[in-house]
Computed example of a mutant assay.
Amino acid sequence: MLPLHFAVDYLSYRLKSFKLHGVHSPFIFNLYRNVILHDGDYYAYSQIETLREKLLQDNSALQITDLGAGSVTGNSVNRKVKELAQNSAKPPKYAQLLFRLANHFQPQVVFDLGTSLGLTTSYLAKACKKASIYSFEGCANISRVAKDNFKQLKLKNIRLIEGNLDTTLMQQLQKIERLDFVFFDGNHRHEPTMCYFNACLQKKHELSVFVVDDIYWSKEMKQAWQEIKKHPEVLQTVDLFFVGLVFFRHQQPKEHFILKF
């Protein structure tokens, strides 16, 4: 059962959100109609979802080190692969949305901040095979499973970066010239979310796309989302409840949309 605050936030979102007739921005209108609401099938869907079903049946136990924000040693617990597939991986609806966004914008450099078992990373890699996909994971044992999943899907454009995201993100940002697409799913607290967001801003450009996960997950994430919307470099946002889309397009006015999804 969803927490009460989450249910209340979702009800408020449903009451505020609207569909195509309420979208007056041509850019957002076309994106919403042709990408976000697209209900067709892509070849990658069945391949990755077949792997998901396999992982949901996997009883293998992993020792998980959750570094979190600012932690050096982390906390270790044992969890089954199927539990990670059930609770940590993005559901198909949203993983496939990320595929469609990446397929539409065709970014060349993609950061996935939070690999987990690699299902979302695989969707991004399948969507833009010529892109360089950098996926960040703090736990070595989870990384091992993700690498095996990438191998099964024959994905060769992913570089999996292990270690504390507080350190590895900044190191990798220094090695690239610009950043085209980012999925923020590395930490669901206000301070680290804003830290990672501001760090990635250093390498964004006008056509960059940032996707923030779980913007209503907690009071801290709601605070982070509001700050992102107000940031002077952020010009358009789309609230889809479970994820938020961020754009920096100067040819459109600063606008914020709450759309049904």
Rank of each mutant, 00 (worst) to 15 (best):
L15K: 13
F18Q: 00
F18H: 11
K19G: 09
H24L: 02
I28M: 01
F29L: 11
Y32N: 03
Y32A: 01
N34S: 13
I36F: 06
L37M: 15
H38K: 13
D39W: 02
G40D: 12
G40F: 14
Y43P: 04
L51K: 10
K54Q: 14
L56V: 12
N59F: 08
A61I: 07
I64R: 06
T65Q: 15
D66W: 11
L67R: 11
A69M: 07
A69K: 12
V72I: 15
T73G: 02
G74Q: 06
G74E: 03
N75R: 11
N75A: 10
S76C: 10
K80E: 14
K80I: 00
L84E: 00
A85T: 06
A85P: 01
S88M: 07
Y94P: 00
A95W: 03
A95K: 04
Q96H: 13
L98W: 00
L98G: 00
L98Y: 00
R100F: 04
L101P: 00
L101N: 03
A102M: 01
A102D: 03
H104D: 03
H104F: 15
Q106A: 09
V110N: 05
D112H: 11
T115Y: 12
S116G: 01
S116K: 06
L119A: 02
T121V: 07
S122H: 07
A127G: 11
